[in-house]
Design a binder for these strands. Structure first.
Lengths: 336, 336
DNA sequence: GTCCCGGGTGGCATCGATGTCATACTTGCT
DNA sequence: AGCAAGTATGACATCGATGCCACCCGGGAC
């Protein structure tokens, strides 16, 4: 007997038939609407149970207004703790409102991102949260005012009027720079990621502004940008240390680059000072000084903004800035 | 003017009207079905573009069979790197087949888990991947053969005939025990999580079997189970070290507990040897010996099994076991 | 004994798309 | 010229639930 791969689920009509009532009455009973005789209600419930009936949410949604209880998140790979911490915060907040989260990884590819956004919109998500890979959000502008609330996370919505939750990138980077300057460092290297990403630009700017206000220019030969992965960061830091006059301190502008730097410094006898942007697990054990911020809060705030829009809020676009704080754990306090 | 919070999206009927064709023809044109005159196709496409039309996936799904392109994942908090790594693997694999992932956090609460599964089933997910919080999966049994494929991750489906992807927990734990024994250790502590979780039981068993085969019993006073979070693990390890005769080695049975142990050992002068189950970021920098396994692969394999079922595969339940490997990085090679 | 009211129920249209079938009009062939 | 085959199009039912409206009936008010 070639067993069926899927067994069709019973419909409400079948439940009604078994209970000996009309479709409509069965619907009322299962939805606990008023004006259903207790005995009828029980009969319908029993029929539903014995058939293993389960409401068809798709049909309900279609009837109720063609909008789902889903919220979409398009971000980078969840394997990166930054994205997963944000996703976790979002999910927690959404659940409070009975909303579910669909996630998709843009693989840092703008084209893919776009098609994912399309797919989400087709599924009629109630809101769309995006941590865009690039800076070109124009394609979202078209959708923006067509009823689906957008919230940008970690990237400013660049010309587009949409809600956003950002990190105080410039402020955090400035504090890192100032911290190292205060520790007596002057030859400070900055290892930064792709400058096409707005947060990276802000971090670079913040760091530079700290240097400039202080009147320090010795950092300039040690600027390294476009360092995009752990391996590359490790190599870059190794190379920095091999210079004739190596830097006495290093500032890495995100968690991946900090990881690379830590690998490079692992067996170095007198390592330079190190401050990393983004806190990470075990930074305390490693004694790594970081510019920390609450990643879960980023997600929660974004979800909150989205929920307010879903609930009908219509004010102008808002931007929430999550503050940073420098946590000194030792690596940033080493002297040159 | 109180602007509408949501602008209704145009329907296919409106597109058809604008293009001056029938609903059906517009449908054909946008779906690139054959037998549409080129000029008609263009007219419809233009009308759709100018109205900002987007297909209503909900309606389509209802018509096409009341089943969505969604796959659900119910797991623990994505903030835990184990879960997020698994989720990342799942998402990657699903995307290849045009499926989207909905995630939900069970907060280690069986009741919540159950209601999330319900919510997913109502949304007519095509498959359901579960990393159950508890051992009671009976409620899933009812659903199991009703058409929605289930895949268990990291927990055996306990009596229920469902596909599963497991880690070689016993084997991994045994290798950790043997490694420490080979290093000359006898007074070996095991710090384990809640024994109600099957993987924990297997890890405990594996470790114990290594001890037993070797004829070592000195570990027994140092067994600590029901240690469920980082803080608790840290405290437990501190307490172990304060014993009159402290253990010379410690085996922690998951990533959280390893983190706690590392915190406790941070400033200890002659720390005991340490082997942790689960690899983690920066374990190399910290020099932590671990029992590693491919978390992404767990997700990928689970998604693959689910996809095969979705595609009609009807064989008996399968179980895939992901192997482990001990990675020596120093902490496990310290001698007593 | 009417009338009215409201509890309990059912009929039917509807959400937005797609599948089936029917139809008008070409084309190509004998 | 006449007919089969194929192309381009449209009408209508349908997926599974819910909203609106109509109906039946029993009991209290007058």
């Amino acid at each position: 007997m070639p067993s069926e791969s899927t067994v069709r689920r019973p419909t409400l009509t079948e439940v009604a038939a078994l209970a000996g009532v009309s479709l409509k009455t069965a619907s009322r009973a299962l939805n606990r609407e008023p004006n259903v005789a207790p005995s009828t209600g029980r009969r319908v419930q029993d029929a539903a149970d014995s058939l293993g009936y389960r409401l068809n949410g798709i049909a309900r949604e279609l009837r109720r207004g063609a909008t789902s209880a889903l919220v979409g998140l398009v971000s980078g790979d969840l394997a990166n703790p930054f994205y997963s911490a944000v996703a976790s915060g979002i999910e927690r907040e959404l659940r409070q409102h009975g909303l579910l989260l669909i996630t998709a990884n843009n693989d840092e590819d703008a084209e893919l991102e776009r098609s994912l956004v399309d797919a989400f919109l087709e599924r009629r998500v109630r809101a769309l949260l995006v941590i865009p890979s690039g800076d070109d959000h124009e394609y979202l502008a078209i959708e923006g005012n067509r009823g689906v609330p957008f919230v940008f996370l970690d990237r400013p919505p660049d010309g587009l009027a949409a809600d956003a939750v950002l990190i105080d990138n410039a402020g955090g980077a400035r504090s890192a720079g100032e911290h190292l300057l205060a520790g007596g460092h002057r030859r400070i290297a900055m290892v930064a990621d792709l400058a096409r990403m707005a947060p990276q630009r802000s971090r670079i700017d913040g760091f530079v502004s700290a240097m400039t206000s202080f009147g320090n220019t010795l950092w300039e030969p040690y600027l390294r940008t476009e360092v995009h992965d752990v391996r590359h960061a490790e190599r870059t830091v190794r190379d920095l240390l091999l210079l004739e006059t190596p830097p006495t301190a290093i500032f890495t502008t995100n968690n991946r680059l900090t990881t690379g730097a830590l690998r490079a410094l692992r067996d170095v006898v007198r390592p330079p000072a190190l401050v990393g942007f983004d806190d990470f697990d075990l930074a305390d054990v490693l004694g790594t000084t970081v510019v920390a911020h609450d990643m879960g809060a980023i997600g929660r705030e974004a979800a909150r903004l989205a929920y307010e829009r879903i609930s009908g809020h219509t004010g102008p676009a808002r931007t929430i800035v999550i503050s940073t704080s420098l946590i000194a754990r030792g690596s940033g306090e080493r002297t040159g």
